[in-house]
């Protein structure tokens, strides 16, 4: 589904990713862990198509297609979803308008008829229950005045509405209390299917108690320095990142 080969990325001349290789097959859950500043969010942003990153070498294909040829909106419509680490507040853009536009752009891409207002509200009600999203929140502007936890829930809510092929959760667990964490994880698990894949980017293993990864990778200084099964997350939790740093000559 997703294939990253020798990806090197710089920001303003500074190398952030120094040769990433990663294969994500349908149905798999990958966790990418690593200390702060290792390049986790850069990888997420590059996958979603954010500007400001210089791809110095390497390639990424998604379902066989060169990702760099696609705009962020095209990537989204083809099924890539980024759950933001810091979802932005957009006063003046009502949630409902935003969500409906987004859902209908996806439908248009698939050659489906746009949802009517009634159909959309029905869909929204259904998905809202899934993440226990308060109706009061969907009556606001996008993320406006949302608490940290509400913003993260809103990301998962959008994910539930759009049903992406590949979800990238960028530090979705940061700033969540345990109840919110469970709701978010339940939302992610509810969407799990043989055709859908997830990349969970996280600093802590906590979230991985709820979203069980098939593969765990450790990102350090812009490279994946270790890959293993779920047990690696537990080992990291126990030993911390110092161990990785020492192994990789710091």
């Amino acid at each position: 589904m997703l294939s990253i080969k020798n990806l090197c990325v710089s920001i303003e001349g500074k190398e952030i990713l120094t040769g990433i290789n990663l294969e994500v097959r349908p149905g798999e859950v990958h966790a990418i862990m690593g200390p702060n500043g290792s390049g986790k969010s850069t990888l997420a942003n590059v996958l979603a198509g954010r500007e400001g990153y210089e791809i110095t070498s390497g390639e990424i294909t998604f379902e066989g297609e060169d990702l760099f040829e696609l705009s962020p909106e095209e990537r989204a419509r083809k099924g890539i979803f980024l759950s933001f680490q810091y979802p932005v507040e957009i006063p003046g853009v009502p949630m409902v308008t935003f969500l409906k536009t987004s859902v209908n752009e996806h439908r248009k891409f698939k050659g489906e008829k746009p949802l009517t207002a009634g159909e959309f509200l029905k869909l929204m009600r259904e998905k809202k229950q899934m993440v226990e999203m308060d109706t009061e929140l969907t009556n606001r502007s996008v993320n406006e005045g949302f608490s940290g936890g509400e913003k993260k829930k809103n990301e998962i809510f959008q994910m539930a509405l759009l049903e992406p092929r590949l979800s990238i959760l960028d530090e979705t667990d940061s700033g969540l209390d345990i109840d919110a964490l469970k709701i978010v994880a339940n939302g992610v698990n509810a969407l799990k299917s043989p055709g859908r894949s997830t990349i969970v980017i996280t600093h802590y293993q906590r979230l991985l108690d709820y979203i069980i990864p098939d593969h765990v990778h450790v990102l350090y200084k812009g490279k994946i320095v270790k890959s293993a099964g779920r047990e690696l997350a537990l080992e990291l939790e126990e030993k911390g990142y110092e161990w990785i740093k020492q192994e990789n000559g710091n």
Partner: peptide, 18 residues
Amino acid sequence: DEDALFYLRSRGIEESRA
């Protein structure tokens, strides 16, 4: 706001529309 623009685009909304 480029962050807001990217947020909307990352949800499949055409840039001009965003």
